[in-house]
Design a protein around this nucleic acid. Structure first.
Lengths: 338, 338
DNA sequence: GTGAAAGCGCTAACAC
DNA sequence: GTGTTAGCGCTTTCAC
């Protein structure tokens, strides 16, 4: 048995396909009488529009793609969890892609290529791709970038004020009386823009407090994972003059750092205070619970989707804007104790 | 400027559209000479097939949907992380949906409805939907179910042997000398099939060791989250005769339980040994690290995708099978100490 | 092995 | 406000 088509409905209702299409899509005005006839026919036949045909006719897929480096990184998972309902609300389905931070993969996605018609827009959280590389992208692709890039004026960027947030975190450590504060996570190379902003905040907080920065206490890591934090912390502890506080560039890094500290018999926060970044759910349940910077993920998700919808539906090119979501400092046991 | 179409290629190559299609899709045999002509034309024009048109013509979307209850639950995130590359490998894009465990949402997804043409098949990890409810599904939907359902013969089911795995976990607790073993996570109602299998394994291990089961040590939880574990553990500790070991139905539950234990000044594993389930990454970095049952997630993902591809491409109905992935016990600090 | 042509089911310009 | 109709760009049956 063939699927019922719009044409079948038109026939049964005694109207033209055009009218049925109007009713289904709410386009032109339709007389109440006609509308009712059509709706009755639709109900009777159990008609459901064929999305594939509609896609071809309109040249749109009704889908957006969300691209993150890693899905099993709690921060991205939590973000995605917020994006999906927001997109659905706007009538869009969400394709998900992970890049593993591979620049080539990221580049191929933003330049679209063969899959270009599969999604009408993209929310992209780049990792391997530096600001410059982003320029390889298909200029026609409605794009919203998350994280720590800055817009070049052709796409939107949604994030929090990383410098201010990082500064808040370090100021908190200073306020609780710490004097030798380390930073774990710096990445002083082109794709490490995220990290560099945090380092800048680290310096800013020192400057604001009239404190010098001990450059040797800024430790780089390849990524922002637990292992990176654990190893970096070990390096710091092997020094003659270890720090009494650490600002970690992610909660995972903080978790790893704490792991090393406890393993070496040190107390957190008594011996070393630790603060993280991201406010992932884990941090609220570990022992100690992890003080952190909490970005407003719901706001980030909603803003990103809103902007993307705007870009998709606009015929004119939309100038790219910088959008800042709120963040707040959440002190927990890893800095305040119990 | 119009996009170049297959017809343009045909013209330039001096062949019919049919032949170009053949070359692109590798269908019928094509002379080497013709193929080369066509390929040259494709390269010259930078032709890329229009996926939307292909979808309409073939009636397929080239997409599968993966449905999980929560994306920010590490286990599902890790699973999804494994499924996406496997699907991509098979030439499919992955749509992601989360249901929040809402039975209505789950039912609407498996019955397809309006979105039916958006995906060719589904990998589904149900939560709110009981075995029976699964029968509301569109029988034409190629379906692979993950987790703790059992197949009714019309879809495939991929999972580990939960009873055996749970029994392994509890046997481990017995082996290290524990005598009062609690279980956290039972759900004795229709949608709690996952939990019930674990409870069965719990009993089986006791039986195998010739031990009686103290029914009062089996504690139910609404979900498998940290909070559930934390609260259930508190209840157990408030008893006159608290347990000396706990089998938790997920690593998150274990993490919550450990949190409560440490908060009350008890030692893990000296006072209470804890073992979890799922082997999420967190468990490897907490303090103590969490002993667990590790399902082979890569195998689960690959098997699920393979079976789904089979179902999608088969014209005959494929009988549903039960597929078991491997699991193994990973003892860590929460049972062995350091 | 290749060509001609009929759809796939919908949208939307154009006409009335 | 509604009908007519020409595509959207591909696949695929059927001939040759």
């Amino acid at each position: 048995m063939r699927e019922t088509t719009l044409r079948d409905v038109a026939e049964l209702a005694g109207v033209s396909p055009r009218t049925v299409s109007n009713v289904v899509n709410g386009y032109a005005r339709v007389t109440d009488a006609t509308r009712e006839k059509v709706e009755r026919a639709i109900a009777e036949l159990g008609y459901q529009p064929n999305v594939l045909a509609r896609n071809l006719a309109t040249g749109r897929s009704g889908q957006i793609v969300v691209v993150v480096p890693y899905l099993d990184t709690p921060y991205f998972a939590e973000l995605l969890q917020a994006i999906i309902p927001a997109a659905r609300q706007a009538g869009y389905n969400v394709l998900v892609d992970q890049t593993d931070g591979d620049p080539a993969h990221e580049a191929s996605l933003v330049s679209r290529g063969a899959r270009r018609l599969l999604f009408d827009g993209m929310i992209f959280s780049p990792l391997g791709l530096s600001q410059q590389d982003l320029s390889v992208r298909d200029p026609a692709l409605p794009l919203v970038v998350l994280g720590e890039r800055t817009s070049d004026g052709t796409f939107d960027h949604v994030g929090i004020d990383d410098v201010a947030a990082s500064s808040d975190a370090v100021a908190h450590l200073i306020k609780i009386g710490r004097t030798r504060i380390a930073a774990i996570g710096d990445q002083p190379y082109p794709t490490g823009e995220a990290a560099q902003l945090r380092t800048r905040g680290f310096r800013a907080a020192h400057a604001a407090a009239g404190r010098p920065v001990d450059e040797t206490l800024i430790v780089g890591t390849a990524r922002f994972n637990r292992l990176d934090g654990a190893q970096a912390m070990a390096t710091l502890l092997d020094r003659a003059d270890p720090p009494d506080a650490v600002f970690c560039y992610s909660d995972l890094v903080a978790s790893g750092a704490i792991h090393t500290l406890l393993q070496r018999g040190l107390r957190v926060p008594e011996d070393v205070a630790v603060i993280g970044y991201d406010d992932i759910e884990d941090g609220r349940y570990g022992r100690p619970t992890i003080s952190t910077i909490s970005p407003d993920k719901k706001a980030i998700a909603q803003t990103a989707v809103d902007r993307l919808m705007l870009r998709i539906s606009s015929s004119e090119p939309v100038p790219g804007v910088e959008l800042r979501a709120a963040h707040r400092l959440i002190p927990r046991e890893s800095t305040l104790g119990r």
